[in-house]
Simulated assay, not measured.
Amino acid sequence: MRVICWKTIWLSIQTMELFDNLMDSLAEQSYGVIDSFLTPEEITDLVILLRERHLAGRFKTAGIGRANDQHIEAQIRSDHILWLETHSTAVMEQVFFQKINELIQCLNRSCYLGLKDFEFHYAMYPIGTFYKRHLDRFTTDSHRKISVVCYLNEDWKTTDGGELVLYIPEKKPIKIDPVGGHLVCFEADLLEHEVLPATHERLSLTGWLRTY
């Protein structure tokens, strides 16, 4: 898949300001970043929800593969995850879903991607954990179009590590710090990527924008 985006006059000024650079970047280099997609207050509220669910024992060690073929490979992936429910009654999760729906609408109208749905999970990386280089899209399932990572790390420093590394064909790898509130989007079937180990716990909302 190669994303080609077209700006159109129907977009509101507010929406254009939020998503314009992202759409340009996706079209030009297959990835983009939105600074401050979440406010500090929204990050704090989501982290509270994450920690409540973690203390309740709802997180599981993440596996690789799909459905019945999924298995644990600690030497490849060592984070812990909890899938979000779209009918969640948590106000802050619904706020996040609303923002993602707005992003989907803009991408569909400007990039003609035909996105219909999304799926997200909380991801918790304890100190020193990682996710080796991989591609998000399954060979037997082409529905994942855009990978999305929204960081929930408060007061993250460059020296903390935990960068997302994007491997762009015929270019040098791009490293992105997991700064709280920032949202990263990239083409799920094109860019291999990995998560480097960090010296602090690393938190995010990670998921995919999908067709049916």
Rank of each mutant, 00 (worst) to 15 (best):
W83F: 09
N68T: 15
I72P: 07
G65L: 09
F59P: 00
I81Q: 03
A74D: 11
I72H: 12
A74K: 13
G57L: 08
I76H: 13
I64V: 12
N68V: 12
Q75G: 13
R58F: 00
R77C: 08
E73W: 01
D69K: 11
H80A: 08
L84K: 00
T61M: 15
S78Y: 01
H80D: 08
L84E: 01
D69L: 12
K60Q: 13
D79V: 04
W83M: 04
I64L: 02
A56Q: 11
E73C: 07
S78V: 05
L82I: 04
I81P: 03
E85W: 08
H71L: 07
R77Y: 07
Q70E: 15
T61S: 13
A62G: 06
I81N: 04
R77K: 13
K60D: 10
A62E: 03
A62Y: 00
A67E: 15
D69T: 09
H71T: 11
D79E: 03
S78P: 02
L82T: 05
G63W: 01
I64Q: 03
R77L: 10
T61D: 07
S78N: 12
G63R: 05
R58G: 02
H80Q: 11
N68A: 15
Q70Y: 06
L84V: 02
D79L: 03
A67S: 14
H80N: 04
F59L: 02
D69P: 02
A56W: 02
L82K: 01
I72K: 14
T61H: 12
A67C: 10
R77H: 08
I81L: 10
T61G: 13
G63A: 09
A56L: 09
A67G: 14
W83A: 07
W83S: 06
E85S: 13
G63T: 04
A74F: 06
F59M: 03
I64D: 01
Q75E: 15
H80Y: 09
F59W: 00
Q70I: 13
I64S: 01
D79F: 00
L82G: 04
L84C: 02
I81S: 05
D69C: 08
R58K: 03
Q75N: 14
Q75R: 15
A67H: 15
R66G: 07
R77I: 10
D79N: 07
I76G: 05
Q70S: 15
Q75W: 11
L82Q: 04
R77F: 06
G63L: 04
A56I: 05
A67T: 14
I72W: 09
E85P: 02
K60N: 09
L84F: 01
H80V: 07
R77A: 11
E85H: 13
I76D: 10
H71C: 05
H80E: 07
I64Y: 01
R77D: 09
D69G: 14
A56S: 07
K60A: 10
G57C: 09
I72C: 11
L84D: 00
A67Q: 15
D79A: 06
R66D: 09
R58Y: 00
N68S: 15
I76F: 12
A74Q: 10
F59D: 01
T61I: 14
L84Y: 01
R66A: 12
S78H: 06
T61F: 06
R66K: 14
D69F: 06
I81R: 03
A56N: 09
A56V: 05
E73Q: 13
T61C: 10
I72G: 07
H71G: 04
N68Q: 15
E73N: 13
D69E: 14
T61P: 05
T61N: 12
A67P: 05
